[in-house]
């Protein structure tokens, strides 16, 4: 899965000359937390987040009541946005995991997706990544969720798929990750529809050195 497959295309965009209050209204009306700021040709110049719209206490302290309302009325998007040079962005043909790592490394919740000449084609947010993760593990489909623990060496996964192929089962979601507390092993999570738990346990337990550690129908 690439960024282009999980991003939200055609995000709502605003221009740097808008007032901050308009940006705020747009975000709350549409229940979104990030607004890419673009100039002509959808070229990215910044990003507005919810936090950016909240006032810093020291700023408030330095203004009196009259000044605050004037300050707010004149406040423009371009004054409060995160500028392009300090923005982290991603291209649409990167992998989802790369995008996710960019977000977690920089501790940010949103990556604008840009093309070769910096035009915004979409955004990837934490929500998109988590949705991709759900789809990867087959959440939208009914079926059994099976976790199998296997040694970390080549050929192990093939054993598992051979059994599945022999039985003619369909796999709706799949994910593997190193077993947290068992070095040298990894866990594979599979979503298989239209099977019973007994059937699955009986078939999969035949595989040498692998162990079914969890089967559940509710996800």
């Amino acid at each position: 899965m690439l960024v282009r497959d999980c991003m939200t295309r055609h995000p709502i965009l605003i221009s740097p000359n808008w007032s901050a209050s308009e940006a705020e209204r747009l975000m709350s009306e549409n229940r979104i937390r990030h607004l890419p700021v673009v100039e002509d040709g959808k070229r990215l110049v910044g990003l507005i987040t919810r936090q950016r719209l909240s006032m810093k206490p020291e700023m408030l302290g330095s203004l009196n009541v009259w000044e605050i309302s004037r300050y707010l009325a004149d406040l423009k998007v371009k004054q409060i946005m995160i500028k392009r040079k300090s923005l982290v962005t991603v291209e649409e043909d990167r992998s989802v995991e790369r995008a996710a790592s960019l977000m977690s490394e920089n501790r940010i919740g949103c990556l604008p997706v840009v093309d070769d000449d910096d035009a915004v084609v979409g955004v990837v947010t934490e929500v998109d990544i988590s949705r991709a993760f759900q789809e990867m593990l087959g959440l939208p489909v009914d079926g059994l969720r099976i976790t199998v623990r296997m040694p970390n060496r080549p050929g192990e996964f093939a054993k598992l798929t051979r059994v599945i192929a022999d039985r003619g089962w369909g796999v709706m979601g799949i994910g593997t990750f190193p077993s947290r507390r068992n070095p040298g092993f990894f866990d594979a999570v599979l979503k298989i529809p239209n099977v019973t738990e007994e059937e699955v346990r009986a078939e999969l337990s035949k595989i040498e050195e692998q162990k079914v550690i969890d089967v559940r129908s509710i996800v």
């Binding site: 497959d5 789809e135 939208p140 489909v141 798929t161 599945i164 192929a165 003619g168 089962w169 369909g170 796999v171 709706m172 529809p193």
Partner: peptide, 13 residues
């Protein structure tokens, strides 16, 4: 054969 038919994301809910 191992991948059952799946709706494309845009057609989904």
């Amino acid at each position: 054969s191992t991948i059952a038919e799946r709706k494309s994301p845009t057609e989904g809910i």
